[in-house]
């Protein structure tokens, strides 16, 4: 392979690099040929010494220019991410302070209240059942009332268990989400 053939092959393999990069590389390799000839070598020897133009083009594409392009592109993205994290962290803190935590306390309070009502209902129900034999004429009404209260107790118990379960799952998920935001931003 002579100089011209080698450079043509190299140029075609460099394809997608910028015009300036290709021109610079061509100048470098062309200079290498000229120096080699000045040192008494033939173009064919020099071409062999340089190695396969396809391999050389590959090294050029993997090397400097690609890395510098990546560096330039990565830098602003990182900056933007940094800003994002600060803003989103601040947002999360404020959101937790003014929305999430008060809401959480309100739900816990509501659950405790419903729980207390449930305990009250059960106590009342037990007292009613104990007292039923003394009802006399109102026995039928007493049993009806007892059954009604029992149904309410069961309904509230099921509701309470379900709500508590999802509340605990929700709290766990919210904490996980918080951690993620803390680390990666919105």
């Amino acid at each position: 392979m002579n100089k011209k053939e080698y450079l043509e092959k190299l140029e075609s393999e460099l394809g997608q690099m910028s015009y300036k990069d290709v021109r610079d590389i061509m100048a470098d390799i062309s200079e290498h040929f000229d120096e080699g000839v000045a040192h008494g070598k033939t173009e064919d020897e020099i071409a062999k010494g340089l190695g396969n133009p396809v391999e050389l083009a590959k090294s050029f594409k993997e090397g400097g220019t690609v890395a510098s392009v990546l560096q330039k592109r990565q830098a602003p993205v990182q900056n933007a991410k940094q800003k994002d994290t600060t803003a989103s962290t601040l947002f999360v803190i404020l959101f937790n302070l003014f929305v999430a935590i008060p809401l959480w306390i309100a739900i816990v309070t509501a659950l405790i209240t419903v729980g207390a009502i449930e305990v009250g209902l059960i106590t009342g129900l037990v007292a009613l059942i104990v007292g039923i034999p003394t009802f006399g004429n109102f026995l039928g009404a007493g049993i009806c009332l007892a059954i009604t209260i029992l149904l309410v107790v069961i309904f509230v118990a099921v509701l309470l268990i379900l709500v508590t379960k999802y509340f605990i799952i929700g709290t766990g998920k919210y904490i996980a989400w918080n951690k993620k935001i803390w680390k990666e931003g919105l």
Partner: peptide
Amino acid sequence: SRKIQLADGTVYPILRKLASE
């Protein structure tokens, strides 16, 4: 390439990379 056995061309991509860095 005299000291380490490799193709003469190897040095050029390295030089470009070092320049870009």
